[in-house]
């Protein structure tokens, strides 16, 4: 019956509109988080750059110790992989693209004969990897949205322990880099041994005169600096991951809202036609009935 169809359509339109309200709200929330998390990346930059400068200075002061701490490993028997994802879904391809990159990395490491231990930031990774037969040893949950430096410290101390004990020779980080508001890229970075000195630190190279003094001796200094540098790297990755997550979620929710708009429009058009149809049918019936009565007279 035509009237029944109209009622069903009305119900569907209502449900689409309710969903649209939710996606719109999520879009606005994510948008407000973007600027905040971007500001945190900017605020973190002086610390990160300062840490790099100090490490490089210390590495220049004692190349032998630096080589032990910073040189790439000769042979990797066991590696540790950290994947930075979000705690929540509904964020487009943000989670899946990091996790897929992590999966590829693990597969290629295993193909080279290394054993891999897997750690994750975010709630989503454990289920994803279990389904693919990889076990996540530990997930850090509840820190992906608004990471604090203390969170970064906790992650750093957990993943540094196997490296310090010699159980793994390499620690790799898979995370999303926030290049700009329009572009976020999934990158694999070697965390340990620290790979910092290869990174260009400053646009204009400052020329420093003379030699550098160290307090305490440089070897000791480097030994204590390395964990701080690791914390700093992880914190930056967490901040950029959070910003990328919010950006990605905002984009996904904007698309969902637009989609809901379109669907609602299509549905109400169909509904209007159905209503018009039923009215036309009704008029035809009345006219037909009147005609029949008149001709019957």
């Amino acid at each position: 019956m035509a009237g029944g169809q109209e009622r069903i359509l009305r119900r569907r339109i209502k449900s689409v509109q309710a969903t649209r309200k939710i996606t719109k709200a999520m879009e606005l929330i994510a948008a407000s988080q973007i600027s905040r998390s971007q500001a945190r990346i900017v605020a973190n930059r002086p610390y990160r750059n300062g840490m790099k400068r100090i490490i490089i200075e210390a590495a220049k002061g004692d190349p032998a110790a630096a080589k032990r701490l910073l040189a790439p490993p000769e042979k990797v028997d066991a590696a540790l992989v950290v994947v930075v994802t979000g705690d929540r879904g509904l964020s487009g391809a943000y989670n899946s693209s990091v996790m897929r990159a992590g999966e590829r990395l693990v597969t290629s490491l295993r193909a080279e004969g290394a054993s891999v231990r897997l750690f994750a930031v975010g709630k989503k990774a454990a289920a994803f990897y279990r389904f693919r037969g990889m076990e996540v040893e530990e997930s850090f949950v509840g820190i992906a949205d608004k990471p604090t430096f203390a969170d970064a410290r906790a992650v750093a101390s957990t993943i540094a322990a196997p490296f310090i004990d010699g159980e793994v020779q390499q620690v790799l980080l898979v995370s999303t880099r926030f290049v700009s508001a329009g572009s976020q890229v999934v990158e694999v970075e070697q965390l340990l041994p620290l790979s910092m000195p290869d990174v260009p630190i400053n646009d204009e190279p400052k020329k420093l005169e003379g030699y550098t003094e160290f307090e305490p001796e440089v070897e000791q200094l480097l030994f204590f600096l390395a964990p701080r540098a690791l914390e700093s790297e992880i914190f930056t990755a967490l901040l950029e991951g959070a910003a990328s997550f919010h950006t990605s979620q905002q984009r996904a929710m904007a698309a969902a809202t637009e989609n809901a708009d379109e669907l609602g429009q299509t549905l109400s058009r169909i509904m209007n036609r159905a209503r018009q149809d039923s009215i036309t049918t009704e008029i035809m019936e009345i006219v037909g009935g009147a005609e029949a009565l008149r001709s019957g007279k």
């Binding site: 200075e57 002061g61 550098t212 307090e215 305490p216 204590f224």
Partner: peptide, 13 residues
């Protein structure tokens, strides 16, 4: 320690 202008380049804790 005290750092004054023209202090030599130093790294420390």
């Amino acid at each position: 320690f005290t750092i004054l202008p023209e202090h030599t380049a130093t790294v420390g804790d």
